[in-house]
């Protein structure tokens, strides 16, 4: 698992790097908040980050705020590191969007345990996203052919017809049918019939992709 460490103090950074490497993490290190943001918004960015609170220019709290403003990317688990330790500081840190908070000098076992918590949260997040995408697909596609289902195509057609009226243009609708399909089912059984439907449907979406869609 890759982890980002943002720490301006070289000694603390070196200690963190080595501790995390020993714990099996692959570490990406930066020296300030601006570099941390640049790393964390990359496509293959680390999903775990340890951010020092006090850094020049952009501090750890601002990094948390900036990342939470960007909601389009995968969730990043953010831990703030600081020697600040009052309740007000902890509250302020967490309200900036941090998931957790660790006081310095850090306790190695506590750090590892909190990172494991972060990994569990990320795993849960990934499962939820996967489940949501799967449900979205199932709700909009035919289970057998994976083409759009009736509900979606009616919605799309309504939208397209309205658009064509508004733009005074045309909407084309093409209907495909398989002649004598019943004979396939009767002669070879429904399982083979399903295979035939899947095979027929397979090239349709790619061919119609540019034009609009298939259902």
């Amino acid at each position: 698992m890759r982890i980002l460490v943002a720490e301006d103090d070289a000694l603390s950074r070196t200690l963190l790097e080595r501790t995390l490497q020993r714990a099996g993490y692959s570490v990406v290190s930066v020296e300030n908040g601006a570099q941390a943001i640049a790393e964390l918004v990359k496509e293959d960015a680390p999903r775990l980050a340890l951010l020092d609170w006090i850094m020049p220019e952009v501090d750890g709290v601002e990094v948390c705020r900036e990342l939470r403003r960007r909601k389009e990317q995968a969730y990043t688990y953010l831990i703030l590191l600081s020697s600040r330790e009052s309740k007000e500081d902890i509250v302020a840190g967490l309200e900036s969007g941090a998931d957790d908070y660790l006081t310095k000098p850090f306790n190695v076992d506590e750090l590892k345990a909190r990172l494991r918590t972060g990994l569990r949260i990320l795993e849960l997040e990934d499962h939820l996203v996967e489940a949501r995408e799967s449900m979205r697909f199932q709700a909009t596609h035919d289970l057998l052919t994976s083409l759009w289902n009736r509900g979606v195509i009616v919605e799309l057609m309504t939208h397209e017809i309205m658009r064509s009226r508004r733009e005074r243009s045309c909407t084309s609708v093409m209907m495909c049918d398989i002649d004598h399909f019943k004979a396939v089912n009767d002669q070879y059984g429904h399982a083979t019939g399903d295979d035939v439907l899947r095979e027929v449907a397979l090239p349709v979406p790619t061919k119609l992709e540019a034009a609009g869609g298939a259902a």
């Binding site: 330790e85 006081t103 310095k104 000098p105 850090f106 306790n107 190695v108």
Partner: peptide, 12 residues
């Protein structure tokens, strides 16, 4: 338990 500093829980 290893700690970064001679402190109690969370160094408080």
């Amino acid at each position: 338990m290893a700690t970064w500093g001679n402190q109690g829980v969370r160094g408080v």
